[in-house]
Amino acid sequence: NITNLCPFDEVFNATRFASVYAWNRKRISNCVADYSVLYNFAPFFAFKCYGVSPTKLNDLCFTNVYADSFVIRGNEVSQIAPGQTGNIADYNYKLPDDFTGCVIAWNSNKLDSKVGGNYNYLYRLFRKSNLKPFERDISTEIYQAGNKPCNGVAGFNCYFPLRSYGFRPTYGVGHQPYRVVVLSFELLHAPATVCGPKKST
């Protein structure tokens, strides 16, 4: 009989979020998941679920829940969905086509923008091939755009693969920082350890 609540607040209220190319993952297990707390949290810009209804989450049990978190621009949030393409979905964070879970995003301009620009948040701009679902690539190898080998030196046709967002408070909404948490639900042939409040007695 599990009684402790799942530590969703640790994920959602973290002081610093990860850059999207180096997205953070927390495994959540052996706890009671009260999703209504999240669902009623006012400032969400997006709360979209795939393969599961957000209002039914509290009735369900899962083997594991993974909480992935990172920061992207407002106009990139739409790429955090199954079957998407674009710089983020291709080179930074890719969801599987059969994704079961929820994508939760909110504007973090007050936290993550600075006058003069916040350059701490990076994304991958160049990559030889697209990421596989949930693949994480933190390499900083110089990207070779031409035929000539770069030998690890940036220059003509040789690019550092990461780019900084440089968030400023005055940017338009599409270019403002958004914090994103992706909850993915794993249902294995194993005992369920993460259940909603109704199922955990």
Rank of each mutant, 00 (worst) to 15 (best):
S164D: 08
L131Q: 03
F47A: 07
S69K: 01
F8N: 02
W23P: 05
F41H: 15
C158M: 04
A105E: 02
Y123S: 13
F126M: 14
D137L: 00
G166Q: 13
L111A: 13
D9I: 13
F156G: 15
I138T: 14
Y50P: 00
T201F: 14
C150K: 06
S53W: 05
S19H: 06
V181P: 00
D137H: 01
Y165V: 03
L125R: 15
D98C: 05
G116E: 14
P169C: 06
T3I: 06
T63Y: 09
N109M: 08
P133V: 04
Y123A: 10
K198F: 13
A42M: 10
C49F: 01
V115M: 12
F99Q: 00
S164R: 10
G174M: 13
I2P: 10
S78L: 05
V37C: 11
Q144P: 11
L95K: 01
S36W: 04
A81R: 06
K199C: 13
F167D: 05
K114W: 09
S200W: 12
R16K: 14
V180D: 00
T85F: 05
L183A: 00
G86H: 02
Y50D: 02
S78I: 06
C158Q: 06
S19R: 01
C31K: 06
G174D: 15
S129A: 12
P96V: 00
P169A: 08
V180W: 01
G117A: 09
N109Y: 08
K148L: 11
F45Q: 15
N13V: 00
L95R: 00
W23T: 04
C150I: 05
N75I: 08
V71N: 01
S29V: 08
R127E: 04
E186F: 00
T100D: 01
N30Y: 05
T15S: 12
C150Q: 06
K198L: 12
N151E: 12
Y143C: 07
N58K: 11
N13Q: 04
W23E: 03
K148T: 13
Y178P: 01
E135F: 03
Y165P: 05
T55E: 15
N1Y: 06
P191M: 07
G146A: 10
K128F: 07
S53G: 07
T63P: 06
A46F: 09
S113F: 03
S129C: 09
Y21K: 03
P191T: 12
P197E: 12
L95A: 01
G117S: 09
V11P: 02
E10M: 07
T193Q: 12
K94R: 09
K198A: 14
S36I: 03
K148A: 12
N40Y: 06
K199T: 14
D90P: 02
G152L: 08
Y21Q: 06
N92R: 01
L95Q: 00
Y121R: 03
A105C: 05
Y121A: 07
R179M: 03
V153I: 12
C150R: 05
S108I: 04
Y21H: 10
S29E: 09
N109C: 08
A42K: 11
R168L: 10
F12N: 01
I2S: 14
T15H: 07
N30F: 03
E186N: 14
P169S: 10
N92H: 02
A190R: 12
A105M: 06
R124T: 02
N1Q: 09
T193G: 10
P149H: 12
G83N: 14
T85P: 05
L60G: 07
G83H: 10
D9A: 14
G74P: 04
D90V: 02
S164M: 07
I142A: 09
F185R: 00
I138Q: 11
L111Y: 12
N13S: 04
R179E: 03
N30R: 06
C150Y: 05
T100I: 14
N120V: 09
V71F: 00
N13W: 00
N75V: 08
N107W: 03
S129R: 14
V115E: 15
P149L: 10
P7Y: 05
F126C: 13
N30A: 06
N4D: 11
P197G: 13
A154H: 12
T201P: 14
S113G: 10
N157W: 07
R127V: 02
Y121K: 06
G166L: 07
F45D: 15
R124V: 03
Y35G: 07
P96N: 05
F134H: 10
L188M: 13
Y121C: 06
N157K: 12
V173G: 09
S53K: 12
G172Y: 09
P197M: 15
A14H: 05
G86S: 03
N120Y: 08
F8Y: 06
V194H: 11
N58L: 05
N130K: 15
F156S: 15
I88Q: 03
Y39L: 14
I104V: 09
C150V: 06
W23N: 04
T193R: 12
S184R: 08
T63D: 11
T201I: 13
C195V: 10
N58F: 05
N64P: 08
A42R: 12
D59H: 10
A14G: 05
Y123W: 06
C31Q: 06
A14I: 04
T55F: 11
G196I: 10
L122R: 15
N147G: 13
A154N: 14
C102E: 00
V194S: 11
F185L: 06
Y91A: 06
A67K: 01
E141I: 07
S200Y: 13
E135T: 06
D98T: 09
V37S: 14
R25K: 03
V182A: 00
Y93I: 03
N64T: 13
N120E: 14
S184K: 07
F160A: 15
V11A: 02
G166K: 14
G172P: 13
N30V: 01
R168N: 14
I28A: 04
G116S: 11
N1K: 09
